[in-house]
Design a protein around this nucleic acid. Sequence first.
DNA 1: CCTTGTGTTGAG
DNA 2: TCAACACAAGGG
Length: 294
Amino acid sequence: MDMISGTDDDCSENAESRSKLPSSKYKGVVPQPNGRWGAQIYEKHQRVWLGTFNDQEEAAQVYDIAALRFRGQNAVTNLKTTNDQDYMERLFLTSHSKNEIVDMLRKHTYEHELEQSKQYYAASCHVDLSESNTINPFSEEAREFLFEKVVTPSDVGKLNRMVIPKQQAEKHFAMNPASASKGLLLNFEDELGTVWRLRYCYWSSSQSYVLTKGWSKFVKEKNLKAGDLVCFWRSINMGHAHHSKLHIDCKPGNGSDFEEVQGRVDLLDPVQTGSVVRLFGVNILEKSDRLYCT
DNA sequence: CCTTGTGTTGAG
DNA sequence: TCAACACAAGGG
């Protein structure tokens, strides 16, 4: 019934050393002359070789990982269900360059590195979100911190908008007068690679810059609360000099209500008391440039 | 040697 | 963008 590409039945090794190689049922998986399996993915008219493996499933799995890294969460995969939300793995994938992922796959060290990172995330609670003006040496992209805001009750309320502090808006999101009334549609990518399309416009009545359409969805899905931080940054793709992407990330505030938070002078000064942040379901304490578990 | 993975082509 | 095929490069 289940004749899986006759590894043992159709090519009975006769004098016909030239028999056809068995095809794989998996995408991105190709047979090798010695009976092993190669994995490959194409990008930009070019093949990217992912290595050779003993069995199809292993090769297919490798293809899947590459596909998720190269093409995002909507990639067509063999075995991996894109639904199973492995937060850690997605973060792991998006925080490594394609070359790094490919190297791991070729050297068969991906699973190990992933586990290593999971341990690291859980143990040290380190994450490189919202680090200012830094370049991640493991990424192909340089990141430029723009600004962050502690969201107000009205930002997460029924007004379905977030006010961007005027100074920040004019500095980082310059908008020509023509677009002001209509606004601009901006794409922001979050740390998981999800793209949020937000309308950015100027409200002359209140003389303020705001994110409107799409914002309430962001608030809802990220479960943003007053006092939480929203961070904006820009990545510059080193390969294509002129392409930069906008990014948005958020993290919980320090657990107090917004009113309490407002009363605290040292809210944004981690040196003073350290702020508690929940990451991966763990409360962590932020001190200087490193994060520690509480 | 044997294995990898590139060159290449043609189908979709 | 993809797999099929042939075979040269490369390492032990």
